[in-house]
């Protein structure tokens, strides 16, 4: 059997630039329908259809946040239980050591804290941020992705990627421009 050497493709991918979200969504849908999977789109503000079009149908964010909330709440309650029943049991006005109603406010706050921390840091981790360098920043005009332009990217790592054919497909979708993205 011939040994397949992994050759680094010449470009990171092809980027199509659009004026408006409608065209970008249509283009992303079309590219996805054509069987490309390593695709992405870029927009200055969230466009739900665009995320759907590149194949993101659900995120695990709610689960992550739920786990954070449960961990936070348990930490809060058990901390108070441990402190007041075992470690430093203090008789205050004859109240029981395990006086659970008084433990609720701190438990609640810790639940929110846990869930909030997991929401933000979970989101960053799952998005792979912080990531100071990324090849897409090499695309011409990409600075406008944070202003009023919309971009659709097909990565060269996609098995269906072919510089000519993929380029033709993208150009047929009415972009302003289709450009190579350097590594």
């Amino acid at each position: 059997m011939a040994v397949k050497r992994k050759v680094r493709p010449a470009v990171y991918g092809l980027m199509a630039e659009f004026d408006n979200p409608t065209d970008a969504v249509a283009a992303a849908r079309r590219v996805h329908e054509e069987g490309y999977r390593k695709i992405d789109a870029f927009s200055p503000y969230p466009v739900e259809e665009l995320s759907e079009a590149v194949g993101v149908h659900k995120t695990y964010m709610p689960h992550v946040v739920l786990v954070g909330g449960i961990l936070g709440g348990l930490t809060g309650y058990l901390l108070q239980y441990y402190v007041h029943v075992h470690y430093y049991a203090l008789n205050v006005g004859g109240k029981p050591f395990h006086s659970w109603p008084a433990f609720i406010p701190v438990t609640f706050e810790m639940t929110v804290l846990g869930a909030g921390l997991f929401a933000v840091f979970g989101m960053l981790a799952m998005n792979g941020l912080p990531e100071p360098y990324h090849p897409v920043f090499n695309a011409p005009n990409f600075a406008l992705a944070s202003r009023d332009r919309f971009f659709v990217l097909v990565e060269s790592a996609d098995p269906k990627f072919d510089r000519e054919r993929t380029g033709e497909l993208l150009r047929s979708l009415g972009p302003r421009e289709v450009t190579d993205v350097e590594h």
């Binding site: 992303a28 992405d40 789109a41 870029f42 927009s43 200055p44 969230p46 466009v47 739900e48 665009l50 995320s51 079009a53 590149v54 993101v56 995120t59 964010m61 989101m123 960053l124 799952m126 998005n127 941020l129 912080p130 990531e131 100071p132 360098y133 990324h134 897409v136 920043f137 990409f142 992705a145 944070s146």
Partner: peptide, 12 residues
């Protein structure tokens, strides 16, 4: 943090 407005990122 290197935010690039990716549609996959926006969803999360």
């Amino acid at each position: 943090l290197g935010w690039r407005g990716s549609a996959r990122h926006w969803a999360r």
